[in-house]
Amino acid sequence: MKILIMDDESQILKLLENYLTMLNHQVVTASDGQKGLELFLQTPDVFDLIITDFKMPGLDGISVIFRLKDEGYEIPVVFISGHRMKEEKVDTRDLKVAAILDKPFDLKRLNQIVSLVEKAESK
């Protein structure tokens, strides 16, 4: 699978990239929403999944996903949440949300979700 990861925490970005690459996924990383959006729009059809932080400086994760939806791209997404506060109680029913993971989460759990998305997308 080709996965786009967006997070402003460089360490999280690095660890997720290492882990998912180890599991034979192709990973592209972006340190903020704007970069992530630009990267996605360059080659929109190659991505199978987006993993993104909810809150980020600049364009945040949820805004990127809504922007993509507006542009006609409905892609499975895994949200990572630092703390589910009011801002994060956004109505995500219209989006293809595979999971919302609260930090700290286990990498095995992420792997399970990624595998489920892979299975669902290959059907």
Partner: peptide
């Protein structure tokens, strides 16, 4: 508290992932 929780959950998230990766 929301900002603080975010501040603490971020390092906790990194630590948890680093432990998982160490085990692998």
């Amino acid at each position: 508290v929301a900002g603080v929780a975010h501040e603490i959950n971020n390092p906790l998230g990194v630590i948890n992932m680093a432990v998982d990766m160490s085990l692998i």
